[in-house]
Design a binder for these strands. Structure first.
Length: 479
RNA sequence: GCCCCCGUCGUCUAGCCUGGCCUAGGACGCCGGCCUUUCACGCCGGAAACGCGGGUUCAAAUCCCGCCGGGGGUGCCA
């Protein structure tokens, strides 16, 4: 602690609504908010925005929290809006009393009709203001009748709200573009625009980082801040993430949830790193691989791009490969690989063996899913050789190779890939066959496939009894 | 339709603020070569961009204007 900074502590928050899985775009927003807070030694708050009782689901909340933790985020405070309704109630009263808001008895059908008419006439839709000036008596009467009502914010006429966005710069929006908007639903629950303002103000949020799809909400919120007598925070609207067709990344582009990437065998470190590079770039140099700690150190809003970025799975895959082969420790790789190997039904009780295999093969797969396929020969007892390849073995006179190997197996030193190559060279010499033929024959008998991991690596870790078993099986099969 | 935002290789981007160092740099992907027991990995090389049109200036990717293009919003969703 330098103790020199007298600035007010930075407080950011991530506010997901539990109406679906954690989307990559939201995950990136969360990451940027987190980095920004941690960079300045500030506070990062997680707040579940579940005011919409219809669509919010507890299961989604659980998965979102799990995904946030998985990707490496931690938070200092946690809130759930559904538990704060009484707080909102107090402020709603205040707005009503001071005339900043009023009850609206228009039904959804009525409003829907107004909207359709506006669309037909090709004019921008705004609430008509029908209930704006209802007398107190009228209001009481309608309430007494039991008519359901919402509460609308009374937007001041002719106002243009201007704010300085930390990423986009100055943004000015006229209130004519939206009109009086609903802040309390007819079931009494506050809408997003109201709850978000009260919470951000009460929680001391200083910087609101969110997707740019929220830009149009910002003037509404600023108006509420003013009506409530709160100081608005700074806003930073992040460009959205696009799919390959340049429309907002969504389900129809395929996997978009953090959990699906976890299931596909991506490492959280790699996904975190990749997401940071979408819309942000390091201030100097051309490096792309950064740890979370480094990102906390160098992250700055001024380096956030203003334009939307297209998500590129190929690059994510590449980066994941970089993490698998050279960034993470063997210990860490073992940790993340184990569940995948287990799930595939592989025998992984021998930790040293699994680690040996991983260390020798880690430079040849980009995801843990790929790894599972790639490592099959290391973890199964026997392999199936398709007829086509059995035929090929015959043509290559493979029996001679296998017999020779089995014959010399006991005395052979197969302790390393180098030693294996030495051994195979002797087999080549003894059989008089071409090196290619020998290697290829061994590959097919040992893996049942024509391509894959290096045979030298395979032979150097595979227990001799398993080598013998596969070769003997191949021999009998060829007879 | 209306409002707002954005516009450098196919994609992510550096450069733009503070014009000249830009014959525009890096990365993914792509193509070619090397390595090699296969596929990968690795190494070497290559193709590939300042949306268009005006203006300002000795000089513009960089500043100004217009156009075009893309995106987002337009909910009793967030």
């Amino acid at each position: 602690m330098s103790g020199l900074k007298l600035k007010v502590m930075v407080v950011t928050r991530f506010a997901p609504s539990p109406t679906g899985l954690l989307h990559l775009g939201n995950a990136r927003t969360a990451i940027f908010s987190y980095l920004f807070a941690r960079h300045s030694g500030g506070k990062f708050i997680l707040r579940v925005e579940d005011t919409d009782r219809e669509r919010s689901k507890k299961e989604f909340e659980e998965v979102i929290l799990e995904d946030l933790k998985w990707i490496g985020l931690d938070w200092d405070e946690f809130y759930r809006q559904s538990e704060r309704f009484d707080i909102y109630g107090k402020y709603i009263e205040q707005l009503l009393e001071k005339g900043y808001a009023y009850p609206c008895f228009c039904t959804e059908e009525e409003l829907e009709r107004e909207r359709r008419i506006a669309e037909l006439r090709r004019v921008p839709y705004r609430y008509s203001g029908k209930c704006r000036n209802l007398s107190e008596r009228e209001v009481e009467r309608l309430k007494a009748e039991g008519r359901p009502y919402t509460i609308r914010f009374r937007v001041p006429d002719g106002r243009t709200v201007v704010f300085e966005d930390l990423i986009k710069g100055k943004i000015a929006i006229s209130v004519d573009d939206f009109g009086d908007f609903i802040i309390v639903r007819s079931d009494g629950s506050p809408t997003y625009n109201l709850a978000v303002v009260i919470d951000d103000a009460l929680m001391g949020v200083t910087h609101v980082l969110r997707g740019e799809d929220h830009i149009s909400n910002t003037p509404k919120q600023i108006l509420i801040y003013e009506a409530l007598g709160f100081e608005p925070p700074k806003f930073a609207h992040l460009p959205v993430i696009l799919g390959p067709d340049r429309s907002k990344l969504s389900k129809r582009h395929g996997a978009v949830s953090v959990s699906s990437y976890r299931e596909e065998g991506f490492l959280p470190e790699a996904l975190f790193n990749y997401l940071c590079l979408l819309g942000w770039s390091p201030p100097d140099g051309e490096r792309e691989i950064f740890s979370k700690e480094e990102l906390i150190e160098i992250f700055d809003l001024k380096d956030v791009n203003r334009s939307p970025a297209v998500f590129n799975l190929e690059k994510l895959r590449w980066m994941n490969g970089v993490y698998i082969r050279e960034v993470v420790s063997l210990e860490r790789l073992y940790e993340v690989a184990l569940p995948f190997l287990r799930e595939a039904g592989y025998r992984v009780d021998n930790e040293a063996y699994v680690k040996r295999v991983l260390q020798l093969t880690r430079d040849s797969y980009e995801t843990l899913r790929d790894m599972v396929d790639r490592l099959r020969p290391f973890f199964v007892d026997r392999v199936d050789v398709p007829d086509r390849l059995t035929q090929l073995l015959r043509e290559m006179e493979a029996t001679r190779v296998f017999e020779k190997v089995v014959e010399n197996l006991d005395g052979a030193d197969l302790s390393s890939p180098e030693k294996v190559r030495e051994f195979v060279r002797s087999v080549v010499k003894d059989t008089g066959l071409k090196p290619r033929q020998v290697w290829h024959s061994l590959r097919i008998a040992l893996t049942g496939e024509e391509e894959g991991i290096g045979v030298d690596i395979l032979l150097s870790v595979l227990p001799k009894d398993r080598i013998r078993l596969r070769l003997e099986e191949a021999i009998s099969c060829l007879r």
